[in-house]
Amino acid sequence: MPGPERGRRAENDEGDPPYEDPLEPLMARVARGDEQAFGAVYDALAGSVFGLVRRVVRDPVRAEEVTQEVFLQVWQKAPRFDASRGRPKTWVLTLAHRRAVDVVRHDQAASDRDQRYDWTGGPAYDQVADEVTVRLEHQAVRRCLETLTELQREAVGLAYYQGHTYAETASILDANPATVKTRLRDGLIRLRDCLGVTA
């Protein structure tokens, strides 16, 4: 996944093969049980994992627990990580999202969550170590979200950031579930192309 990692986009622009994600050799070492390499993977991805999880589960204390569970999963599953099927960051954030969603779906307090996604939120920039990179990435994502139709944007936000199923999303938006299903796919296609995702 082309991310905020420096150099990645330049390589793509020059037509070079999609190489080398610095996390790939680290993941290979983690797969061999290398705890030091795991520490480096944690340092590279903890901010994204915690940020995403907190966005979905909302409660910071619960978010810490979930983040811990996610990284433990990363450690346990590392021997089965297949680099040919996606980049490590995508894999880890996929695990994180799924876990966060499982948590909110089983959480009774979920019913108290906001019924509309608030796009004005975002990470606390001033506390972020690599502030500029994160800010740029956040802006890129936001800019691309702006290119979606309102229904696409609402649906993607409710599903991804709040962990709603598409059926729940349809109910919240008072839309047809089949339409929401299609809009989620259309929206992702548009986002994928806007963000230049090649994975």
């Binding site: 991310g3 995403l52 966005r55 994180a96 990470p123």
Partner: peptide, 8 residues
């Protein structure tokens, strides 16, 4: 994952 990473 890009949407997620933007929450860093």
């Amino acid at each position: 994952a890009r949407l997620g990473a933007a929450e860093e």
